[in-house]
Design a protein around this nucleic acid. Sequence first.
DNA 1: GTTCTGGCTATGGTTTATATGAGCCAGGGT
DNA 2: ACCCTGGCTCATATAAACCATAGCCAGAAC
Lengths: 181, 181
Amino acid sequence: MDHDDSAAGSTDVLERLGAFSDRDDWPAKGWCRIERSLDVIGTRSAMLVVRELFYGGSKFDELARRTGLSEAVVAGRLKQLYADGIVDRRPYREAGKRTRDEYVLTERGRGLFPIVVALVEWGEGLRDDHRTGVELVHRDCGTSLSAVVTCEKGHEVPVDRAAVRLKGEEYALAGLRRGSK
Amino acid sequence: MDHDDSAAGSTDVLERLGAFSDRDDWPAKGWCRIERSLDVIGTRSAMLVVRELFYGGSKFDELARRTGLSEAVVAGRLKQLYADGIVDRRPYREAGKRTRDEYVLTERGRGLFPIVVALVEWGEGLRDDHRTGVELVHRDCGTSLSAVVTCEKGHEVPVDRAAVRLKGEEYALAGLRRGSK
DNA sequence: GTTCTGGCTATGGTTTATATGAGCCAGGGT
DNA sequence: ACCCTGGCTCATATAAACCATAGCCAGAAC
């Protein structure tokens, strides 16, 4: 297989600043935000349930059927997602049916939107059938959605213009070269 | 536990358009981009390796040590990530050492950047210690990074202004009717 | 050659994730 | 009262993910 990668520059990857410049000093264990996120939504079943919640599913049987997961797994995930504050339960009642709970995304759950969009977008390039599948669009203008990285000033930030540092180390732009440590 | 969610409106979630308006007609199995993405980076170990690649790790022992994963798992992940075109191997040589391979993200691998940023950002809100951990910033202005959803025209799109529809609906509908199973 | 180092693999065991199928039970219908 | 449906749980089983240890082996140093 030839991976025709045109990345000649050996480091168009995150620049490490300050104390983080030697990576090995920082034990990610228990602190890394990514690991924490993965503790909550790191399983296939969790993401599939979240997907269906975004797609409008709310009842237990909808979520089980549409994800293709077993009922036991869906029940377990919903319990965990509830405990973690991703979904809320609210009782409702259909005519002729008993009251039951439906599941809706909380604010925190809706905060997963960029992740969902990014996963859809990235999955697009994985195989070569570009004609099928779903696509996410802007209701107002109809164009398709994309997850982009921006800074607080609204600049779009590509990987090679991004950096990573330990939180709390306020680094003036001028002090970037100070090796710290 | 009280989940004080202020989401009164029952559907600030994706609007479903066209044939996708009844969700049950579309079997996600095998087509969903999210599922495909998860097939590649859906495990904890895969994301941790990707994290370290973004943080500048490239050698085998770096990746093993910094992820905290066992060597066997790292080796397996690297093999899979290589097969899927996420990383490329390039031989190099340190003085006095034998030649070996280092691993660098391909273009496709770097395409995971929004997902990494979104995971870091979302993980931030999960517990209440906001002072530690790493943060991603813009090299140029120093402000922290965020993954936002935009349409092709550059509008920022919140969840409740987004919609989902089948891609190339003519094709998809025809395909489904022909009993594509 | 021989030695030694480091990237990687192979083996075996534990934990986690998921499927399958059976079954409980709250509560509305009647 | 009794039945029945559907949300959910339990029990069991399989598969996948992961760790720990040991060991292989290419190749540079000598």
